[in-house]
Amino acid sequence: MKEKTNCNCCINYIFDEEYNCYGCQVDLDEDEMVRFMGKSYDNCPYFQFNDEYKIVRKQK
Rank of each mutant, 00 (worst) to 15 (best):
G23K: 13
N12H: 15
Y41E: 07
Y22Q: 07
E18T: 14
L28D: 06
K2Q: 13
M33E: 14
R35A: 13
D29F: 03
N43Q: 10
Y53C: 08
C10P: 03
F15Q: 08
E30S: 11
C10T: 04
C10A: 06
Q48S: 09
C9W: 09
S40Q: 13
T5P: 00
V34P: 00
C10K: 00
D29M: 00
E52I: 12
N20A: 12
E18P: 01
G38I: 00
Y46I: 03
I11F: 02
K4Y: 15
G38R: 14
T5S: 08
R57W: 09
Q25M: 07
E30L: 10
D31T: 07
C9L: 15
Y13A: 05
Y13V: 06
N50A: 10
K58T: 08
E52G: 01
E52W: 01
E3V: 15
C9E: 15
V56K: 15
C44P: 02
D42T: 04
N8A: 11
C9A: 10
R57G: 01
N20M: 09
D42K: 05
D29L: 07
Q59L: 15
D51Q: 09
N8K: 12
E30G: 00
Q25F: 05
R35D: 07
G38H: 04
N43R: 05
K60V: 06
D51V: 04
D29Q: 03
V26D: 03
N20W: 00
Y53E: 12
N20C: 03
K39G: 04
Q25K: 12
F15S: 05
C9Q: 14
I14G: 03
I55Y: 14
D29P: 01
E17W: 03
C21D: 14
N50E: 12
N20K: 15
D31R: 04
D16F: 10
K2S: 12
C21M: 14
R57C: 05
D42C: 07
E30W: 06
Y41V: 02
D27N: 12
E30F: 06
V26W: 04
F49V: 10
Y46D: 06
N8F: 08
Y46M: 06
E17S: 12
N20I: 02
C44R: 02
Q48L: 12
R35H: 09
V26A: 07
E52F: 02
F36N: 01
D51K: 06
D42W: 11
K4F: 10
V56S: 11
I11H: 04
E32V: 02
Q59S: 14
K2R: 13
